[in-house]
């Protein structure tokens, strides 16, 4: 399975007209014939696109997992659907990082006895408010 879009140099979301133009432009007659066959009918293009989407997904997954040279990833498919590894992020490591971060925050919160702190802030706030109100009323009366 080859990536005809890549080989014809059109984006996969191109509409039928652009695609037909690209096919007509193609200098390689064998490739042109194949592309004509694959895109001749709307149903065929839909089928092709479905597989193309799956293979693009697998290509990205393989790049991220370091499996671009696997024993089962050879020839045309490997050539056309492997994406260059821009940044490889291990999702699992990221998840572990985030979980540990959350745990640390939580622990800090628990360690500072967050609930009591909240109540203390609340009482200080109300006290300040009452004092402010009293001084305001006295100045207005005077």
């Amino acid at each position: 399975m080859r990536d005809l879009y890549q080989r014809l140099n059109v984006p996969p979301q191109a509409n039928d007209e652009e695609l037909q133009q690209a096919v007509a432009r193609c200098p390689n007659s064998a490739l042109r014939q194949d592309a004509e066959a694959a895109f001749a009918v709307a149903k065929r293009r839909a089928d092709y696109d479905k597989l193309h989407a799956t293979l693009s997904d697998i290509g990205k997954l393989r790049t991220q997992l370091g499996l671009t040279h696997g024993a089962h990833w050879q020839d045309d498919v490997a050539n056309d659907f492997s994406v260059p590894p821009d940044e490889i992020v291990s999702r699992h490591d990221k998840l572990v990082d985030r979980v540990s971060h959350v745990v640390k925050l939580y622990n800090r919160w628990r360690g500072l006895r967050g609930a009591w702190l909240l109540i203390a802030i609340f009482t200080i706030g109300t006290g300040l408010g009452i004092a402010l109100g009293l001084t305001l009323s006295q100045t207005l009366a005077a």
């Binding site: 697998i58 499996l67 696997g70 024993a71 089962h72 990833w73």
Partner: peptide, 19 residues
């Protein structure tokens, strides 16, 4: 199915299962 052909092979590579 064609997609599953590739998915199965992906899983095989992932699990180090030889062809």
């Amino acid at each position: 199915s064609l997609s599953n052909h590739y998915i199965l092979r992906f899983v095989a590579d992932l699990l180090n299962v030889l062809p």
